[in-house]
């Protein structure tokens, strides 16, 4: 009897750990508002990186933000160049190779400040929260996020497996 009660309590605690996963923060004005000022716009040499590791993606454990990022990825026509992650005019985003770095803050910089040869700068056009939501989704495409955070299904026909099926072993890009 007591063992059952303890098990039940433990189960309830386990459920509680999921509470933050879908947390929706509607009213915030950008979690890390303002641009990290030590960020260089863009080196002209691919691979020329200086990763300021202290900037973390504020949404990295937020499944709702990843899903919002997925919606924005289509809405702002990222698909036009990067397709559903497979790339086309722009580089693919679902593989472990990053031209300008795969750290959250580097992806953020690519979105906000643009990159040479075609990536437009979205800074000033989209809000900081939207940029971070996009970062979250882009991270999820190559398996850089926890599996329970990645979007689990697509609304449209998809020629690729969902973001949840990626593995976390792609964490580090090859140097």
């Amino acid at each position: 009897m007591r063992a059952a009660a303890v098990l039940g309590l433990l189960g309830a605690l386990l459920v509680l750990t999921g509470c933050q996963r879908e947390q929706r923060r509607f009213s915030e004005v950008a979690p890390a508002s303002g641009r990290p000022d030590r960020l260089r716009a863009s080196g002209f040499n691919p691979g020329d990186r200086q990763a300021p590791a202290e900037f973390r993606n504020p949404y990295e454990r937020n499944a709702w933000a990843a899903a919002e990022g997925k919606r924005l990825y289509a809405a702002f026509n990222c698909i036009g160049c990067h397709a559903n992650g497979g790339g086309g005019i722009g580089p693919p985003l679902m593989d472990p190779a990053w031209i300008y770095g795969g750290e959250p803050v580097e992806i953020y910089a690519s979105i906000v400040e643009g990159r040479p040869n075609g990536m437009p700068a979205f800074g000033g056009r989209i809000t900081d929260s939207q940029a971070w939501q996009l970062v979250t989704y882009v991270q999820s495409m190559s398996g850089l996020l926890r599996k329970d955070v990645r979007p689990s299904r697509s609304d449209h026909m998809s020629v690729r497996p969902s973001e949840q099926s990626g593995t976390s072993e792609r964490r580090k890009p090859p140097q």
Binding site: R24, F26, S27, V29, R71, I126, T127, S129, Q130
Partner: peptide, 16 residues
Amino acid sequence: IDPQRIKPGVHMPSIG
């Protein structure tokens, strides 16, 4: 100024 206060969750973001 703050659409999220009036209609929380709406896709229009609050812009500064």
